[in-house]
Simulated scan of single mutants.
Amino acid sequence: MNISTHAMSAFKPVKVMGILNVTPDSFSDGGKFSSFDKALTQVELMIINGVDIIDIGGESTRPGAAEVSEKDEIARVIPLLKAIKSRFDISVSIDTSKSAVMSEAITYGADMINDVRALQNKGCLDVVAQSDVTVCLMHMQGMPRTMQANPQYNDVITDIIDFFQQRITSCEQQAIDKSRLILDPGFGFGKTLAHNYQMLAHFAEFKQLKLPLLAGMSRKSMLGDVLNRDVEHRLAGSLTAAIVAVQQGASIIRVHDVAETVDAIKVLTEVAQYSNNH
């Protein structure tokens, strides 16, 4: 299943990317088989609920997160990728910043690489250049461990657009065609609360780069800080943020709550159909 960026124009079709974290703290019962089993059950549920892309992550990128070795990350994500690809007809994205993980993932059928470092780490541009996978380039100021210490911008929108232009140029210089790229401004990655809401309010400005846009705000602290709710109780906030992003031109919404997001987008798509017909 290929994720064609050409098909993701304007308001339709908006794709829902379901988050599947296989970091040790993602599954309460620990044990390897149990976690693997649970992960596949979760994939099946997301597919039933209408997900378009499964995004597998083997290293936490939350603020303060510890780094994971390439070997450990490969051991977490590759067996799951292989199992999903052998059982289901679904697009799979691998959320990684490591060239060795990217290489293994591409070998075993990943459709997309989702990189919070936007292919800046050693060897990543080369690995992707030798493949035909879709790549999501994300903006992050700093590194996960320290990114929320004191993020500062001259102008958050302009600075991110400048960063994306540089990364697009780097990709094109490595013969990675622009049609393979997706952009994610990186909500919560080296951004203050004000930065995050400024980005959401002006999300449509990123469309000037003429590439599909991904928005990932699901359950993030930018919602918790406004709602004063813990992670499990941010569904309404997550859906509202997703709707605003879609209305501003997002092509992919990355979420934990697939069924509810699919429903919200169906209603939005229906409304758009009638507003265009008038």
Rank of each mutant, 00 (worst) to 15 (best):
T41H: 13
G31A: 15
I53A: 09
N121I: 02
S35F: 00
T107D: 05
G142W: 07
D52T: 04
F88R: 06
D126F: 11
T41S: 15
T96A: 04
V43D: 10
S103P: 05
S28F: 15
M112I: 11
K38W: 06
A105Q: 05
F33M: 11
R87F: 06
L45N: 14
A65K: 03
S69K: 00
I47K: 10
S93P: 01
D132R: 12
G50D: 02
S99K: 10
F88D: 06
D115A: 00
E73R: 06
D89A: 13
V68F: 05
D37Q: 14
L137W: 01
L45I: 08
G57K: 04
G109L: 11
I54V: 12
Q120V: 00
A83K: 11
M147K: 02
R117C: 11
Q130K: 15
P144Y: 08
D52C: 04
A39E: 05
I48R: 15
M147V: 00
V127I: 14
I78W: 05
G58S: 02
V128N: 04
A100Q: 13
T61E: 11
V68Y: 05
F36W: 01
L125E: 11
K32H: 13
F27D: 03
I47E: 08
Q148A: 13
M147L: 00
G50K: 09
I106S: 07
V51N: 10
K85R: 11
S34Q: 12
G31T: 14
M46N: 12
P151L: 01
S103N: 13
E67R: 11
Q120I: 00
